[in-house]
């Protein structure tokens, strides 16, 4: 049994330690907001946060994650997360929507380290998240919007 902390809750999972976290989240914990896109860590659809850092759950063996704090899209409730959800909706970012949970988690990790990212910062942080619908310009706009709100709003202070 592997003990996992996902979205603040403890879970005991009976899984092959080599099984990628993605499939534990989806098939064992029913957390289907985390999406499968490539299985080799190059498209970003499966992005989750491990101790606040964006990682690709499709290539992370679950056996290596005991005791680490895992956040999926369905548990992203930080101030940054709330600002990103609001901005994503306001800019109407999604089209098919399949990549957006991963995009939002990559953006959350970006804003945690870089509260006021430049376009170049955004390109660098988000280049691992593919969107075949081509919502990139709106993602960029939504990240700037969320960053601005976090800096000046009631939740501000850049945290």
């Amino acid at each position: 049994m592997i003990s996992l902390i996902v979205n603040g809750e403890r879970h005991k999972v009976d899984a092959d330690p080599d099984m990628p976290l993605l499939w534990v989240l989806r098939d064992h914990l029913g957390l289907d907001g985390t999406k499968y896109g490539c299985g080799e860590g190059v498209c970003g659809a499966c992005t989750i946060l491990v101790d606040g850092e964006a990682m690709r759950s499709c290539t992370l063996p679950v056996g290596e994650l005991a005791g680490r704090a895992i956040t999926t899209i369905q548990g992203l409730d930080s101030a940054i997360g709330k600002a990103l959800f609001a901005a994503w909706a306001e800019v109407d970012v999604p089209q098919c929507g399949y990549c957006q949970p991963g995009q939002i988690l990559s953006a959350a990790a970006l804003l945690r380290h870089t509260p006021k990212p430049s376009d170049t910062d955004i390109d660098t942080a988000m280049d691992g998240n593919l969107c075949r619908c081509g919502t990139y310009a709106r993602i960029r706009a939504a990240i700037h919007l969320a960053a601005g709100r976090l800096a000046t709003g009631p939740l501000g202070g850049g945290k």
Partner: peptide, 27 residues
């Protein structure tokens, strides 16, 4: 006019084919 499907697509609750779970289901 805003997209009606933004919220659930952003927060991961929108349903796609691979997200359906049925009792006794295999893959």
């Amino acid at each position: 006019i805003r997209r009606g499907d933004s919220k659930t697509k952003n927060d991961g609750t929108a349903l796609y084919g691979g997200d359906i779970r049925l009792p006794g289901m295999v893959t």
